[in-house]
């Protein structure tokens, strides 16, 4: 049952409701229910946080290495270099997200302008 499996107009919305809404608000509601009952420092939560962080990082890496759309026409090395430069600038520039975004985008833009193929 993939996103495009059924031709009915409501199927994509049901897919988003179950695959998206239920899968996220379940955790939010559980969080309210548990309230102060769970210790934020328990080892189980550290493990859970680590897996979640690793998973989101894998998503980010795949967006950079295997992009779609206009990004797919740029060289892989340029994307990795631009993302790395943005991340380094973020670390050096006092961990401000804006700094990382501006530097990363500038490197990508300059690289694209420098490539005559594009």
């Amino acid at each position: 049952m993939t996103f495009t499996a059924l031709d009915a107009w409501w199927w994509p919305y049901l897919f988003i409701l179950i695959g998206g809404w239920l899968a996220t608000d379940f955790w939010r509601f559980l969080g309210v229910y548990l309230g102060g009952r769970i210790s934020e420092d328990s080892d189980l939560l550290v493990l859970v946080r680590c897996i979640a962080t690793g998973l989101v990082a894998a998503v980010i890496a795949n967006l950079i290495v295997f992009p779609t759309g206009a990004l797919a026409t740029t060289p892989l090395l340029l994307r990795i270099f631009a993302a790395g430069a943005g991340f380094l600038a973020y670390l050096v520039g006092g961990q401000r997200v804006t700094v990382g975004i501006v530097v990363g985008e500038a490197v990508l833009g300059l690289g694209m302008l420098a490539m005559p193929v594009l």
């Binding site: 695959g19 996220t24 955790w27 969080g31 897996i51 979640a52 998973l55 998503v59």
Partner: peptide, 19 residues
């Protein structure tokens, strides 16, 4: 749904801290 749920586990401790 499983992949999305796994990527959103972090929401539970966040809500636990905020509530």
């Amino acid at each position: 749904a499983f992949a999305v749920a796994l990527s959103s586990v972090r929401l539970a401790p966040m809500v636990v801290a905020l509530t």
